[in-house]
């Protein structure tokens, strides 16, 4: 326990938050039936991964621009994925599918 408290810092805390978000979003992704809800879960899961990526690396060796740059790329890829999914879902719904 003392080990935990000693080593704990802001970066590590957010890595844990990221892990929790990842796990919760995974559950929501699998259980939700609505496509939009799945998409929201995917986005939050992604944010969880990003928090782990930056939090863990910075816990190990302080502010690091490499994981930050990777996450910036990740955010853009995520918005592209969201937009693509929305285009497909919208088209699907307009063709009579269930959202």
């Amino acid at each position: 326990m003392t080990l935990w408290l000693e080593a704990f810092n802001t970066d590590f805390w957010y890595a844990i938050v990221g892990a929790v978000l990842l796990v919760l979003a995974l559950g929501a992704f699998i259980t939700s039936r609505q496509l939009i809800k799945k998409l929201l879960a995917f986005n939050i899961m992604g944010s969880g991964v990003f928090l782990i990526m930056v939090g863990l690396a910075q816990y190990q060796h302080g502010p690091d621009s490499v994981p930050q740059a990777l996450v910036l790329t990740g955010i853009v890829v995520a918005v592209a994925a969201t937009a693509l999914a929305l285009v497909l879902i919208r088209k699907f719904v307009l063709k009579g599918g269930q959202p």
């Binding site: 990842l22 799945k38 990526m53 863990l56 690396a57 190990q60 990777l70 497909l88």
Partner: peptide, 26 residues
């Protein structure tokens, strides 16, 4: 519908992979 299913499965897979990359970089 097939495309949406494929996209969601693939996105989930990518995030699993990316989470691993995050741990490995750490």
């Amino acid at each position: 519908q097939a495309a949406i299913r494929y996209l969601f499965a693939a996105l989930l897979g990518s995030l699993g992979y990316l989470a691993g990359v995050a741990l490995l970089y750490g």
